[in-house]
Design a protein around this nucleic acid. Structure first.
Length: 1008
RNA sequence: GGACAGUUAGCUCAGUGGUAGAGCAUCGCCUUCACACGGCGGGGGUCACAGGUUCAAGCCCUGUACUGUCCA
């Protein structure tokens, strides 16, 4: 054994051994315990957040395996539709290869599969290196054939139960990715924009008088999106708005398009916002769409899939689309629909095919330039080239902050867009198709709420359930179709008439609907939202829809460990599907972890350049290498210098290698109560030091039982620990403390308090076992009492063996490595610590007398050390010590611990003075009423001792004053419980006595 | 606008009514036979602010400020 722990060697060896020996697989007849890994996306590699959550899951898994449970940790990966498709497309671009469009669907998918293989392989290696004990024999992927079968199955069943519908709806459309996305994938960002005020002339030359007495022939509408005016089909005002209510029912002429559109009244309109008059574009705004439905307004798209103004309106495809629009849209007036083509023709030629941003500028400019309208204001002047408003039909332009919806993946500004999509009904009480049975609200949403409300699922920390309920209580139907290639193709087929048939495959569809070979069917081009496949992860990985043994045994899983960011995306949807298909929750506990952030508290992301690869913390990385890693392959290379500067500031010396165990322990220690964690490399180094402490404490034990040669570091035959022994106070004390640690560990695991677990282990191992127990065995080892020596050796070994097991779930590698050497000495025959029982507290071995003894001893040591420290007496210099005012108990303890104290405190002698004995001038420490005196002759500086006494006195006087005041208060004496008052009295008496001693001592020293 | 969380030592965080704790950092002493990735000792906090409840508040209640996140 080297003097320094070398994690790399140990990790490589045990990873391989554990896996090949099948240690990760479920075993035994214990009660089932299972965790489903949140499947990482096959978009690349694992980040710190994964490493964090995997540490938690592995700790739980190893703990329960050691408890004897039949434990499964199910691994796997997620195909992550949009995200992966984007990564592959970007890689093709960077490599200069043909684009997705050029490759075509099949060849592109080959590329994605290639990437998936690479990414899943990398992820697997990362998981292995972290020591995560997942059952690799069950590894799953959300597009495995068996998994895909389950995805299709759950779609078809939901569809057959009337809980899925297809329809033309306004959806969030990503014009860059060219797909619909769900509400959850939209991020609203506040941005600086403008509010444009346009004059819309009243039709038929109507006029009115405004509040200022002016006669106007127009109204002013305010909008943040000028380009959508091409799709306006009404102007709306509030029904009680006195400024405009007399105009309701009249029409305005839509400028540029020269269409007449009605003025309608609706209380959706905010009178305070803008002019109180809003333009309504039902096809490109969610609120306008709703309003349009209420007023039976015309609805028509003005954008293409890429958010350009539509091109040729006579285009066959668009005409067809218009017809389908008319058929599919419900709640939209029939006469209005017929007008769609006319409306399209009203879009002026000059805007056709323009990007929406370009169109916006052009439209504003054109409105400004209109001077021949009766509503137009004359362009009178300019101010240094800037237009002065009003100009033409532009009344004014004001700065305005607005929320811009962007796609969470692409970052593109989204467009509300009218398309045909598949939806899961989550909002209806009855079936959408009118057949008997519950709609999605009763069949899916309510049971998901009930699962948590009833306590069948418990959130840890508890407050997350509020978030969960809030979302479910305000839920919308779920758009599950995506216009992507990478994913599960929707099992729906269309005949030439566009009639849709849903089934598990084409053959089933033909059989079910009696469609002969003569009928040509075409499968839906779209794929499912990724979350519409991961929502059955806890079931499908266990074999669902088949009722397998694994499903029976491991469903529901015991706990889901995940981040709050996917409570809606994933957690809630798994609950829905689990409840619906299994009539049972998918997991009993949901442990929500915080996010791993950078040292400044920022979210880690590639674009910010603050990500850390967990393995770089494990293996270490130089500053230059880290900078290089963070600044290559950036979407925006201009940010590189900033990223470099920040990296050099955060990690001036790069990152020291700490090993897997230390990183895992760091995560455990930082996992406080679901709060976000700022990753602190210094902390990890501290736990690297802890590993080294463990390593060397173990060396000490092995050396002392003769199984390790201290000089050469090689193994030697150990001495026997069998036979009769004497257990010392120290032995009984550490065994007692060990019981308390075991009890704490069990409690912290039950409460998912890994921070407290880590703190308990650290405190026991370092501050009790190493700092005190090992030191207390040293004088024994140097003594001649063979029974006591054997007792100490046996206790050293056995307590070490136990705490290695206690620590193993967090630090698997170092504990296994040492356990292999220690276990035989402790009489253990197992082949791996992984499968040993987790220690359980035995209250009978708690020894309060021994604990009190050691506390006294620690106090004694502290007194001497403080004198040494503050007098600057070298630790090695032997000191004579005198004792005054020792109680009978003190004297007895002094006699008992004489050897230990003299050894540990480096004392030359301990002399208990009789009451009559005169003591020489000394530095004093107090232990209860007993005084520990270190004679000053030749050792102690008078001034220093006086200063030390003064400091002690000041603190004591302060405390005493406060406590006396409390006792003097009638309120306290009358109100507080007797025990508290008694305690306070005793404390005051004690402090008074101490103060007297210090005062006396001070007087004696100053008299010198 | 609503909801949730946070505000405790220089930093990162524990602390569910009885005199404020840890790790890291810092200062001093020490190459003592497991470990300098170490040992011993020290310094450092009106617990965001203002009220209230209580004999007693970092902790409970009310309000305010700031920070963060989520939802409209």
């Amino acid at each position: 054994m080297d003097k320094t722990f070398d994690p790399k060697r140990v990790e490589a060896q045990w990873c391989a051994t554990w896996e090949s020996d099948g240690c990760y697989q479920p075993r035994g007849t214990g009660k089932p315990y299972s965790i489903m890994i949140p499947p990482p996306n096959v978009t690349g590699t694992l980040h710190m957040g994964h490493a964090f959550q995997h540490t938690v899951m592995d700790a739980l898994t190893r703990y329960h395996r050691m408890l004897g449970d039949d434990t499964l940790w199910q691994p796997g990966t997620d195909h992550a539709g949009i995200a992966t498709q984007m990564v592959v497309e970007r890689n093709l671009k960077l490599a200069g290869e043909p684009s997705r469009a050029e490759l075509g669907r099949d060849r592109f998918l080959d590329k994605v599969w290639e990437w998936k293989k690479y990414s899943a392989g990398t992820i697997g290696q990362q998981i292995r290196r972290m020591g995560s004990s997942v059952d690799w024999s069950r590894e799953a992927f959300t597009m495995d054939p068996s998994y895909s079968k389950a995805v299709i199955e759950h779609f078809v069943r939901l569809h057959d139960d009337g809980l899925i519908y297809r329809g033309k709806r306004l959806v969030n459309w990503d014009p860059v990715l060219q797909t619909a996305i769900s509400d959850l994938e939209v991020v609203q960002e506040e941005e600086n924009g403008k509010l444009w005020h346009f004059r819309y002339p009243l039709a038929n030359g109507a006029t009115y008088t405004d509040s200022e007495g002016r006669t106007l022939n127009y109204i002013v509408v305010a909008t943040t999106r000028p380009e959508t005016m091409l799709g306006d089909t009404a102007v709306a005002v509030h029904p009680e708005d006195e400024r405009y209510q007399h105009l309701v029912g009249q029409h305005v002429i839509l400028p540029l398009c020269n269409r007449q559109i009605p003025i309608v009244a609706d209380d959706y309109v905010d009178r305070e916002f803008g002019t109180g008059c809003v333009k309504i574009t039902p096809a490109h705004d969610f609120n306008d769409y709703q309003l349009g439905q209420r007023h039976k307004l015309e609805v028509f798209n003005i954008f293409t899939r890429t958010a350009h103004i539509i091109g040729n309106v006579t285009d066959e495809e668009w005409t067809l689309a218009a017809d389908k629009n008319a058929e599919a849209a419900d709640g939209i007036g029939a006469t209005a629909r017929a007008a769609t083509a006319l409306n399209w023709r009203s879009i002026p030629e000059q805007y056709r095919g323009l990007d929406r941003v370009v169109a916006r500028k052009q439209i504003v400019a054109d409105l400004e330039a209109i001077t021949d309208s009766s509503a137009a204001a004359p362009i009178t002047s300019t101010d240094e080239g800037k237009p002065v408003y009003p100009r033409g039909l532009v009344d004014k332009i004001v700065d305005h902050k607005l929320k811009v919806p962007r796609g969470d993946r692409s970052g593109a500004v989204l467009e509300p867009y009218l398309t045909d999509q598949w939806f899961v009904d989550l909002t209806r009480e009855t079936r959408h198709d009118g057949k008997p049975g519950n709609g999605g609200l009763l069949a899916i949403t309510k049971p998901a709420i009930d699962a948590v409300e009833s306590g069948r699922i418990r959130f840890v920390p508890d407050n997350w359930k509020t978030t969960y309920f809030h979302w479910l209580n305000n839920i919308q139907d779920w758009c599950i179709s995506r216009q992507l290639w990478w994913g599960h193709r929707i099992p729906a087929w269309y005949d030439a008439d566009g009639t849709v048939y849903v089934g598990r495959d084409e053959a089933e569809v033909r059989a079910k609907h009696g469609l002969g070979a003569g009928v040509s069917l075409k499968q839906d081009e779209d794929v499912f939202d990724t979350w519409f496949s991961s929502d059955i992860w806890p079931m499908a990985t266990l074999g669902w829809p088949d009722n397998t043994d694994a499903l029976k045994k491991y469903y529901p899983s015991s706990v889901l460990v995940t981040g709050f960011d996917i409570i809606f995306f994933w957690v809630a949807r798994m609950v829905m599907m689990g409840q619906y298909f299994m009539n049972e929750v998918p997991f009993k506990d949901v442990f929500i972890t915080g996010l791993v952030r950078d040292p400044e508290g920022n979210k880690m992301s590639k674009s910010k350049g603050n990500v850390l690869d967990p393995l770089d913390v494990v293996d270490g990385i130089t500053l230059d290498a880290l900078v290089a890693k963070r600044t290559t392959g950036l979407m925006n290379p201009a940010t590189a210098p900033k990223i470099e500067a920040k990296t050099r500031k955060d990690y001036p010396k790069g990152i020291e290698p700490v090993g897997v165990d230390a990183l895992r322990f760091t995560f455990a220690a930082l996992a406080t109560n679901g709060r976000d964690v700022r990753f602190d490399a210094a902390r990890a180094e501290g736990y690297r030091n802890f590993c080294n402490k463990i390593w060397n404490a173990s060396r000490f034990v092995l050396i002392n039982v003769g199984s390790l040669d201290a000089e050469t570091g090689t193994a030697t035959p150990p001495m026997s620990l069998d036979g009769e022994v004497t257990l010392s106070t120290a032995d009984r004390w550490i065994i007692s403390k060990l019981q308390r640690l075991e009890a704490e560990a069990a409690q912290h695991f039950a409460e998912y308090r890994f921070d407290l677990l880590a703190a308990s282990l650290y405190q026991f191992i370092w501050n009790e076992y190493c700092d005190w127990y090992l030191e207390l065995t040293k004088p024994v080892m140097q003594g001649s009492d063979e029974l006591a020596k054997r007792g100490a050796r046996r206790t050293l070994v056995r307590v070490l063996e136990v705490w290695l097991r206690l620590l193993h779930p967090i630090m698997p590698f170092i504990t296994e490595e040492i356990w292999q050497k220690v276990a035989p000495l402790a009489g253990k025959t197992g082949t791996t610590i992984m499968l040993e029982p987790y220690p359980i507290a035995n209250p009978e071995r708690i020894d309060e007398a021994a604990e009190a003894d050691v506390e006294w001893l620690k106090g004694f040591m502290l007194g001497v050390r403080q004198i040494r420290g503050e007098m600057d007496i070298p630790p090695g210099k032997p000191l004579p010590v005198l004792i005054r005012d020792a109680s009978v108990a003190d004297a007895e303890r002094i006699a008992r611990f004489d050897g230990a104290v003299r050894f540990l405190a480096r004392l030359e002698s301990i002399t208990v003075l009789a009451a009559a004995d005169e003591a020489p001038q000394s530095a004093t420490a107090l232990l209860g009423s007993m005084k520990i005196l270190v004679p000053m002759a030749g050792l102690i500086d008078k001034a220093a001792e006086l200063a030390r006494l003064a400091k002690l006195k000041a603190k004591l006087e302060n405390d005493l004053k406060m406590n006396e005041a409390r006792l003097a208060s009638e309120k306290f004496v009358n109100g507080a419980p007797a025990a508290v008052i008694e305690k306070e009295r005793a404390r005051v008496a004690q402090q008074k006595a101490e103060l007297a001693t210090l005062t006396e001592q001070e007087a004696r020293i100053s008299a010198l």
